[in-house]
Design a binder for these strands. Structure first.
Lengths: 185, 185, 185, 185
DNA sequence: CAGTAACCGAGACGGTACGTCCTGTCTTACC
DNA sequence: GGTAAGACAGGACGTACCGTCTCGGTTACTG
């Protein structure tokens, strides 16, 4: 049922898929669809959630913040570059989330928060290890990292590869500026 | 004409606006609209371009990369937080860009590139000044900064304010990690 | 159960009533309804039959054909004028009878024949009494009398009152033409 | 357009025909149908009106009321017996007229009044000729005659032929009772 | 008195049709 | 000669019923 929807989304994109088409494909009546979901976007959200593999696996602790981030960013980069339809569908979901607060909440719960949660955990470990400068805005760092990916895919439409992923992490870890002369050594 | 479209978009969002409605509002026939634009998204793109103030003003050189970035990021943050409909409409445009390559090109030309161009110029000056570590992936830095904003607005849906903007720039400039003891102390 | 259906029919008419609604109103499951009836029209027929008071009472012999007819016609006129929903429902039943021969047979058995039977009995008595001209088409007379009522209600939509009922009987009894001079005067 | 509707009605009956089907058959969009008609019943009414041959032809004056009535009744009897679908469709229209006063008015204007008008004219001529007893309820006579036909077709479901038509007219003209002894000759 | 069958409410389901809305094309009539 | 007005075919929308179909939870018979 969701499987059929997923294939349709993959083949034609959220914008070009109709509830009628999903019903037809799944051999299901439209009424049944509306009994369980409110719109094709909700179906797409659930299908996408399945694509993500359901409740997010707990990420392994690589021992360093850079390693944890690298793993998380690389996983997302690979998902988006290996399956272009995922990026396309997500853009539709994000647009829908701007129109409908209830949907936005569901989207955050299903898509955004699991990843942020993982990232927060990694940052928490990093704080304990003393890797991070005190006063760092962790939430901003997370938005930067993931936002960098989506901006690349959706807006710049540049190349999305491992090298790019590494560059994102490197910049967020160390910044881009030349290190000031060590305090007053 | 575009002004009317802009108001409609502001009031009801891309998804809820129809070509019929735009034609009615502008006192114009639908045929005339289709003579000039291919879809409501193209109209929205053009209207949004006007909102941005047409061809991007050349950003002043503040003398430091941090200053230039701060100015650019803050301007975008303010646009998005002062006029929520702009963020909403942009999400629709971005979604449409994933479905239609021709539209995607127009979107990049009108919306993405002007900003990147400014940013590239600022980074160029920074390189000349020696502010930036050699080998820095400038394109990734730009995606990070702007992507951070959009991710915050569209996905995390957290607070979008000056403090957040400063945090973005601070992280990209200096990184989040504790500076290793200056090697050659 | 049928009582609930009757009320619904009275309130909203055959066309606007659904099996779902009847089931809901009667606190009964749809499956149960379909176990006993084939369609909402059959329910309506049965409910209408109850409204008529079940198996038709045997009409009293008033002593004259005119009296018997007057009584029968007046009774039907009163039923239709006092309870407009009855006329409305009957029109629906009649329409359904044109679509479904099996239903038509049930309709005739329940609604039409009882009345015709009464009328035939009255006409039989009249023949014995010598009230009727030999060679009279009794069936046509019956169709005329009752048809006159329904045509008035359903098609002309004129006033349906005692005066009209009397006029019907008067015409069928005596005709409308000036009596020719009694041949053998 | 109406032609296609007519064929569908003829083949399947009002109850079994959908607006979708009419649109499909006529190669026309549903929106266009709803632009011009409010329901399938209105379409059927218009199609039926065409079947009747548009504005009723003015009936010839046969010289006697009996002749005029015979002609009118026979014409309607032949229409209904030659084309059974006409009777079926009319029953649907009549049922609909009981549910919707606006439709009822249209039905009367298109179907009922033209015939009554003809009949009234014939009765008017008969009055001038002195054929009719003073005080005769002409409207009741008309309801009787046409009602007799419809009752036969829709409810009794007996044979509808020329003989029946003649019997109707004969009864309405002369009544069914034995003539009383000429006043006091 | 337990075991079992018949029945029933509740309501999900695949379908069909509804009446509305919008798209993108087109014709007509005005200026 | 361009344009407003708007009709049109097409197609998706979300809703309402249809008639069929499982489900459980009673009753009421039976052994």
């Amino acid at each position: 049922m969701l499987a059929g929807a997923e294939e349709l989304l993959e083949a034609r994109g959220l914008g070009a898929v109709s509830v009628d088409a999903i019903a037809l494909r799944a051999g299901v009546s439209k009424a049944t669809i509306y009994r369980w979901w409110g719109s094709k976007e909700e179906i797409a959200l659930e299908a996408f959630y399945l694509t993500l593999g359901g409740p997010a696996a707990i990420a392994a602790d690589s021992g360093s913040l850079a390693g944890d981030m690298q793993a998380a960013i690389l996983a997302r980069v690979r998902l988006l570059s290996d399956r272009p339809s995922v990026a396309r569908t997500m853009a539709g979901l994000v647009a829908q989330a701007q129109e409908d607060p209830e949907f936005a909440a569901a989207y955050r719960r299903r898509v955004v928060e699991p990843l942020r949660e993982q990232a927060r955990a990694a940052f928490g470990r990093a704080v304990e290890r003393g890797e991070i400068r005190p006063g760092t805005n962790v939430e901003a760092a997370i938005d930067l990292l993931f936002g960098g990916i989506y901006h690349r895919v959706w807006q710049s439409q540049g190349r999305l590869d491992e090298q790019f992923a590494r560059a994102l992490v490197e910049i967020v870890m160390n910044g881009i500026t030349v290190r000031p002369p060590s305090s007053a050594a």
